[in-house]
Nucleic acid binder design. Structure first.
Ligand SMILES: [Zn+2]
Ligand SMILES: [Zn+2]
Ligand SMILES: [Zn+2]
Ligand SMILES: [Zn+2]
Lengths: 162, 162
DNA sequence: CCCATCATGTAATAACATAACAATATTGAA
DNA sequence: TTCAATATTGTTATGTTATTACATGATGGG
């Protein structure tokens, strides 16, 4: 069964940021870790986009808001958010994107549009994924899977035709 | 059907480098492009390993052999080899590995051991891959797929147990 | 020969990421 | 409360990966 990725269709953006931050905050308290102001702000910055931002982009925006100006400020916040599953790193882009399916345990797969730079996240079942099957046949124990596809999104394809 | 990745078992290494270079050379002539000395040497360097090398590692070895010392020397050779399918970039590692299945058109999937750093390449059918299915359901046109799994290879798992 | 194309080389810089250390805040015993 | 351990934020400096720009030399067709 193939999950239905989101990200290509328009949607009401105003509340999803607040909701996601609130959910993250709750999850952090349950886990006994702190969603501090910088970390929260970094998450908000990524949630405001449906594309991946580089660490230095995030850093610049954090600095505008009065936080530090040096790379570790951004990298530490992003490390925290990534470690706790609120943010994913897109290896192909050396950039970060807010998780579109927070809460659930998942192995994310990404569709990256090279035209409009939107990044859509699809959920996958780790066990029935291709990598999982390969790992099974070879006895390889997977720690982390990177599944990223580059190409042209439906919106941009439509524009090309027009 | 899941292809059987290689790379975890020992094998005779002496001839596979020459064979692969010869095959690449032939393919280049057919395509009307040149496998020049630097490019050939870069390919050999990668073929001598079953792990990924960073561009600067390749650069250092090229320089030892009398080629230029500046980054573009390595990046250009690697770009050429990647473009023509003789080498793949491992995004997770920002590093390059010789293709283990040259000749055939394929969407490579990689298993990266975080212990011994071996990188195994499995062939996948683009169409029946997870990414392919996701793309189909969403109308996304895939240009390139990045499929990389990090974990522990069977050899290293065996050592842990011992 | 002349010109276009490709290939190689260098210098300079951009982009991405971490190490090391100082200062402050939080937490949780004693 | 007091104190020590831990966590957080900040800075400086450095390391690592990658590209831009430009000069030089080779190749090949007209
Ligand atoms: Zn996610
Ligand atoms: Zn697009
Ligand atoms: Zn390959
Ligand atoms: Zn291993």
């Amino acid at each position: 069964m193939i999950p239905n990725p989101i990200g290509f269709e328009k949607h009401d953006h105003s509340h999803c940021v607040q909701d996601a931050v609130a959910a993250a905050d709750k999850k952090c308290r349950n886990a006994g870790v702190q969603l501090t102001p910088v970390r929260k702000r970094a998450l908000e910055i990524l949630l405001e986009e449906h594309r991946a931002l580089g660490a230095y982009d995030v850093l610049a925006r954090l600095n505008e808001d009065g936080y530090g100006s040096q790379p570790p400020v951004a990298y530490r916040a992003l490390d925290f958010l990534t470690k706790h599953g609120f943010v994913h790193k897109i290896e192909r882009l050396n950039a970060f994107v807010a998780c579109a399916h927070p809460g659930e345990r998942h192995t994310p797969a990404f569709l990256i549009c090279t035209e409009c730079h939107v990044v859509a996240e699809a959920e996958t079942e780790h066990s029935d994924s291709l990598m999982g099957q390969i790992a099974e046949t070879t006895g390889f124990r997977i720690t982390r899977a990177v599944l990223e596809a580059e190409g042209i999104c439906p919106n941009c394809l439509a524009k090309e035709t027009a």
